[in-house]
Simulated scan of single mutants.
Amino acid sequence: MLSFVGLGLYDGEDISLKGLRKIREADHIFLEGYTSRLMGIKICEMEDQYGKTVTVLGREDVEQHPDTILEYAKEGPVVFLTGGDPMVSTTHADLRIRAAERGIKTEIIHSSSIISAVCGLSGLQNYRFGKSCSVPYPTENWFPLTPYETISANLKLNLHTLVYLDIQSERYMSVPEAVRLISAMAEKKNEPLPKLFIGIARAGSENPTVIAGNAETLVNADFGPPLHVLVVPAELHPIEEDYIRTFAGYHD
């Protein structure tokens, strides 16, 4: 059995009771550590909470070399932990398909996700979001424009955009960094910069930061420690506008 268990958004208290029971019943526990991170708990603290060893996996371990996980799952209960909800990332769906092809039974223990948390923290209505995108750190010879193109396409359809920010080994993109990069993309495309952004930091914690405003406002704002995520709103519904005025410091 291979159980995909969501850890939620921030710390060790976000996991469901069902997920915690699956961990305690498992012979082996793996943690996917590349699509998201729980900033409110360390691996050693997880192991203390679970009473078991947690093996951290990189992208190549899951996407290219999943045999160890699958072989263990053929013999007994295995838990595959992920930040947020397990099936938000396509790499996790691929692992479940591979398990099914080997005749391994699977199950999903869902948890809170940034997708729903963003709606609660920003007040933006969930059915008004279009395609999401990610802003990566550029390299010397690579500066992708796809994130801006996705945002622009959504705005033309009057849809909001959820923008994921790059996570590297010990480097976490901040909202101000992301806004600067999107500004550079717009300049390279010779197209206008979105008029409004909403930055969110530490969703799921006791003290999340939510700030709405134009590019200059967010570039100069202090969002504090990671993880950060960005939203580019389309035209606001009156309730959405009231919400960000009340809870995100927005003003014209």
Rank of each mutant, 00 (worst) to 15 (best):
M1F: 12
I115L: 14
A100L: 15
V54F: 09
L38W: 12
R245E: 15
E170C: 07
G51K: 11
A26E: 04
K18N: 14
I151P: 12
L159H: 09
Y50L: 15
G120Y: 00
L31S: 04
D222A: 05
N158F: 02
R102G: 07
H228A: 00
S116F: 04
L165G: 11
G213E: 01
S183G: 06
G6C: 10
I182A: 10
E101G: 08
H110S: 08
K188D: 03
P136D: 13
V54P: 13
E206S: 05
I69Y: 02
K18Y: 13
I108G: 01
E13F: 03
R98N: 12
L57I: 04
P77G: 11
S169Y: 10
L31V: 03
E170H: 13
E191D: 09
Q64S: 15
E107N: 04
D61V: 05
H110N: 10
P208D: 00
L227H: 00
I114W: 04
P226K: 06
G8F: 07
M185I: 04
F80K: 06
L124I: 05
L20T: 01
K189C: 07
G40K: 05
G103K: 08
T55N: 14
G76S: 15
G84C: 08
P147H: 07
G204Y: 03
I151G: 10
V210L: 07
H237K: 05
D242C: 02
I167Q: 02
M87W: 10
I239G: 02
H110K: 09
P225W: 06
K18V: 11
M39T: 08
A212Y: 00
L17N: 12
S183H: 06
L38H: 08
T246N: 07
G12C: 03
S122W: 00
A117R: 00
P138S: 01
I244W: 05
S116W: 04
E45L: 08
A26P: 14
Q125P: 05
V79P: 05
E13Y: 06
H28F: 15
A203Y: 01
H110D: 08
A234M: 03
E187Q: 10
Y50N: 10
V54E: 09
Q64W: 14
E216L: 03
I69H: 00
T55W: 14
S134D: 05
Y10W: 14
H92W: 13
V179W: 03
P176I: 13
D48I: 04
Q125Y: 11
E107P: 01
A100R: 13
M46H: 04
L165F: 09
A212Q: 01
D67L: 10
T55R: 15
M173R: 09
K195Y: 05
I200F: 02
P86A: 14
L124W: 04
L196K: 00
I200P: 04
E240Y: 01
V5H: 11
G76Y: 11
M39H: 15
N207I: 07
L145W: 14
G51V: 08
I151R: 09
Q64E: 15
L218K: 03
E191F: 01
S112I: 09
S183F: 08
E60V: 09
V175R: 06
A184M: 11
N207R: 10
G123W: 07
L20H: 02
N126L: 14
I200S: 02
G249W: 15
T90Y: 12
G19H: 02
G120P: 01
K189Q: 08
G103F: 06
E216V: 10
L9I: 08
D27I: 08
E191N: 09
V175N: 07
